[in-house]
Design a protein around this nucleic acid. Structure first.
Lengths: 149, 149
DNA sequence: CTGAAATACTTGACATTGTCAAGTATTTCC
DNA sequence: GGAAATACTTGACAATGTCAAGTATTTCAG
C-alpha cells in the first residue's frame, strides 16, 4: 500500500473522529458519561452479562468498571445477584429504570445521527449507508472481535 | 430516514469508534497524550497558527490548550513569538525537535493504519478508500467546518 | 483431601485529562 | 477616552482512568 493511500485513510479517520466527537457530545447531555453509556449499552445487549465479560468486550479497567456498575446499582439502573454456580461472579441485569435510561440515551443518539444526516437526499443517504457497510465488511475480516491491538 | 437506516449508521459508528480506539492506543505509546498529539498535528499543518485558531479548529478548552502549548514550549517542541501586529496574540512555530516528534507520531500512526489494512487485497483497499472518500464527500457538505453541534 | 494458584470482584491511592471562571494585557470602536 | 471585545493565563477543581493490593471463592495438582 502506498503512502498516499495511508494518508487518505488517515484523513478519513480524522474526519470521522471529529464527527463522532460531535455526536458524542449529544450523549453527554444525559446524566451518564460516555463510558457509563457504553457499559449500559453492553449490559442491555449481552445475555446474562457479568462484569468480567463487559470488561473484556469493552476493554476497560476492572476496578473502574466495578465502580461504574456499583454506581448503576445505587442509582437503581442495574441489579446483581450472586451466581449460584460460581459464587465469585455476579449476574447482572438491567432494571426497568435502567432500560428507560438506556432508551433515553438511545433516542438522543439516534437524534444526533438524524441531525448529522439532515439535508441529505434519500439517494445520498442510502449510498452513504452502503459505503459504511462496505467498509465494515472489508475491515471486519481482521477486526471482528478485536479488542487488543 | 427510517429507524432501520439510523440503526445501520449507528452500527458503523460503533464499529469505527472501536477501530479508532485501537489505532489511538498505538499513538499513546508516544510521550504525547492524544490531545497533545492533535494539537501538535494542528500546529504542524496550519500556517501561522495561533492558540485561538487551534482552539477553534480542535474545539478544545482555551485554558487546557494554553497549558499544552506552554508544556510544548518547555519541552522545546514549539516556540512562540508575540505578534507585532497584535500584541495579544502569539505566533506559534514548531521547532526542529517538534517536527521530529511529530514525524515519530506520524509514523506510528501510519504504521497502525498499515496494520489495520494488512491482509486486504489491493483491490479491496482501493475500494475501501473510495468509500471513505465518498462518505466524507456526502457528509462534509454539512460538517465542513463543524465544531459545535 | 489439601493447599497453592487462578479467577472474580472490590477498594484505596493516585495520575491524567478536562472544565470553569476569574485575572491580565491589549486592541477595537463608539 | 473609555467600555467592550479579544487573546491568552492561571487557579481551583471535577471527571475520568490506572495500578496494585486486598477479599472471597474456585480449581486443580499432588
Amino acid at each position: 500500500m502506498q503512502d498516499r493511500d495511508i494518508e487518505r485513510i488517515r484523513k478519513f479517520n480524522r474526519f470521522y473522529t471529529n464527527l463522532i466527537g460531535i455526536l458524542d457530545r449529544h450523549i453527554l447531555e444525559s446524566p451518564l458519561s460516555l463510558s457509563e453509556a457504553r457499559v449500559l449499552y453492553e449490559l442491555c445487549n449481552a445475555d446474562d452479562p457479568t462484569a468480567r465479560q463487559i470488561m473484556l468486550s469493552l476493554n476497560i479497567d476492572e476496578g473502574y468498571l466495578s465502580r461504574i456498575i456499583n454506581r448503576f446499582i445505587r442509582q437503581g439502573l442495574v441489579k446483581k445477584i450472586r451466581s449460584e454456580k460460581d459464587r465469585r461472579v455476579f449476574l447482572l441485569s438491567v432494571t426497568a429504570r435502567g432500560k428507560a435510561q438506556f432508551q433515553k440515551i438511545n433516542q438522543a443518539s439516534s437524534g444526533a445521527v438524524q441531525t448529522m444526516c439532515a439535508g441529505l437526499g434519500e439517494c445520498e443517504t442510502q449510498e452513504m449507508i452502503s459505503m459504511m457497510e462496505g467498509i465494515v465488511k472489508i475491515l471486519s475480516k481482521k477486526y471482528e472481535n478485536a479488542q487488543a491491538d
